[in-house]
Amino acid sequence: MGIISIKNLSVSYGNIKILKNINMEINERKITAIIGPSGCGKSTLLKTINCMVEEETLSRVEGEILFKDNNIKEMTKEDIRKEIGLVFQNPTCFPFSIYKNMVYAQKYYGNTDKKKLKHMVEEKLKIAGLYDEVSNDLNKSALKLSGGQQQRLCIARALTVDPQVILLDEPCSALDVKNTKNIEEMLSKLSQDYTIIIVTHNLSQAKRIADYTAFILNGELVEYSDTETLFSNPKDKRTREYIEGIYG
């Protein structure tokens, strides 16, 4: 039994069905990559897992998602999102200082002890591999950081609420090779403590970091297995064609 079980999940916007009958088990403390061509529903799947899809008008979700055997429909959105964090494709730093970005969520949960907050900020920034670069100037505006640093700050910020699962929606698509490498190394380390689901366009990235990989095409889950099997010995013809670069 995985930490997240997706059962017969279908999602539609208006009359358009984006995801069709997805069944998946996500394993705890592993990296699961979701690959597939543009517009196949990868991001929608991610957004459905932490109920972000419900913020969009006209979306309809059928089927169920269990988080630790609890149906997420029976939990509040806030509780789910606290347990299942989401990092977006483009960095979404708030236009505040680095420090304020990091303590933003903690203040809601009532942590105002400055010492504890400072310790927490340091710890999470270290995990995200950003601390050494910004430790001298935590009051600098987050928007003045480079793209890669901003994305790492967003990951560090997602960690501040101590989630169990982190969802990442193509976190490296706007970054160069060096920053991508930094983030991949960080994710591999994070997977010792957190469950990670990453949507990626980049097949070699999935191959490098993921323990499991799922291939989605036109809203259907075509194949889902451990990364090595999926890439070296795909069972489905469509998966093989995608890996060989026939689709998008």
Binding site: M52, R81, L86, V87, F94, Y104, Y108, R157, A158, V161
Partner: peptide, 17 residues
Amino acid sequence: DKNIVYASYALGLPKSY
């Protein structure tokens, strides 16, 4: 930028906050 708002929601924070 809607993503900033969603990023806040994604931290488990309610709309009021």
